[in-house]
Amino acid sequence: MIIHHPLLGPRDAQEFTYLGDATLIDRPDAMAEGALEAFDAYLHLRDNPAGTHRELWYHEVGDRSWLVVTRDTRTHEITQVELARDVALSKGRGR
């Protein structure tokens, strides 16, 4: 697979390590009501779709940025690559 890095252009997927579903960006508030259930879902439960999947890849042997890659799990076709930082900021996160 080739991942089109937003800053570095096309890179071999072997340069990256894979973490999983991009919802891992949305870390629950540990102080909120029902945090135990929220963290159980955050840590352990996954949508695991057959089709479009937004997922976190880490450019380990490159610039060490986190990316959000949109990929079809049935075909491995990649349709969008964003910096995870931009995605987090757009969700109102501080960094």
């Binding site: 579903d21 352990h44 695991n48």
Partner: peptide, 16 residues
Amino acid sequence: SSRVMEMAGLRLPIES
């Protein structure tokens, strides 16, 4: 498993 159990509204601790 995730695809079938989704029909019951359940999310599983599983990735394919």
